[in-house]
């Protein structure tokens, strides 16, 4: 099976600083690639390059086509991005924001033949449980509700590859679980893949199929989650005994549950 996304020698520089240094990897349908590593490793910058938000050198191919050559709308039909925080300037309704997701599918200037899009929008609203909020202003939503609104927009956009940039950074536990469960459900349909940047190693391990471990702009290890999250790699990257720390933390939990 051919790769969906192929990244070759990706390098991103800001002035003199090299943030991402000659990175190559690929993602195939059905995979959920977790990009992990300490702060400043360049994880989010990879995402920004793949979504064409920052200039880069090297090539990024989506199904064999250089993304630099895709038109904006075509790009959005292939790759969708969920970023970590949103501040909406005006009081748009939840429904208006979700419907913006269909922008890339709108047939030119004249809006017609919306049937399939309508189905996608309703489906996205139902899956994310946003029905009760549709006419509410986005300014009145909590962080978790706002993130679900943008997730619904993304589902309505219906891309093939989902890019999540620390999607649950400011969210409490229950929303973290919701977002990851929704994305996991989304990935079950054939021909889809996910790349996400996460800080929480347990989340990465629980939901990822593959992982890419980075430090200072370079790849330390890449492969299946089990391979990459082996103690020797993690300890090297984080400069500490990660497994020991995890055992201590989660040991306390399991101990508490028993008593």
């Amino acid at each position: 099976m051919g790769a969906m996304l192929e990244v070759n020698n990706l390098t991103v520089r800001f002035g003199q600083m090299t943030i991402v240094d000659e990175i190559s990897f690929s993602v195939s349908p059905g995979e959920w690639l977790m990009i992990i590593g300490p702060n400043g490793a360049g994880k989010s910058t990879i995402n920004n390059a793949i979504s064409r938000a920052v200039p880069y050198t090297g090539t990024v191919l989506f199904e064999g086509t250089d993304i630099r050559r895709s038109k904006s709308r075509e790009m959005a039909r292939n790759i969708g991005v969920l970023s970590q925080n949103h501040y909406v300037g005006y009081g748009f309704t939840v429904e208006e924001v979700i419907r913006l997701g269909r922008y890339a599918h709108a047939p030119g200037l004249l809006a017609g033949g919306k049937d399939e899009g309508e189905e996608k929008v309703r489906d996205a609203i139902r899956k994310t449980g946003m029905e009760p909020y549709l006419n509410q202003s986005v300014l009145t939503l909590s962080g978790g509700e706002l993130q679900r609104t943008f997730l619904a927009q993304l589902f309505a956009q219906d891309p093939r590859l989902l890019i999540l940039d620390e999607p649950t950074n400011h969210l409490d536990l229950i929303y973290q679980k919701q977002v990851f469960a929704l994305v996991g459900e989304w990935l079950k349909k054939p021909g889809r893949a996910v790349i996400s940047v996460v800080h929480d190693l347990s989340l990465a391990r629980a939901y990822g199929t593959h992982a890419l471990l980075m430090k200072k702009g370079k790849i330390v290890s890449i492969g299946s989650v089990e391979q990459v999250m082996a103690p020797e790699y993690l300890n090297q990257v984080y400069d500490m005994d990660v497994y020991d720390w995890m055992r201590q933390m989660y040991g306390q939990w399991s101990g508490a549950a028993q008593t």
């Binding site: 904006s72 949103h86 909406v88 005006y90 748009f92 922008y103």
Partner: peptide, 12 residues
């Protein structure tokens, strides 16, 4: 108006 990043993401 929702956000320039969001505009780019949805294909503007």
């Amino acid at each position: 108006a929702v956000g320039e990043d969001n505009a780019r993401n949805i294909g503007v």
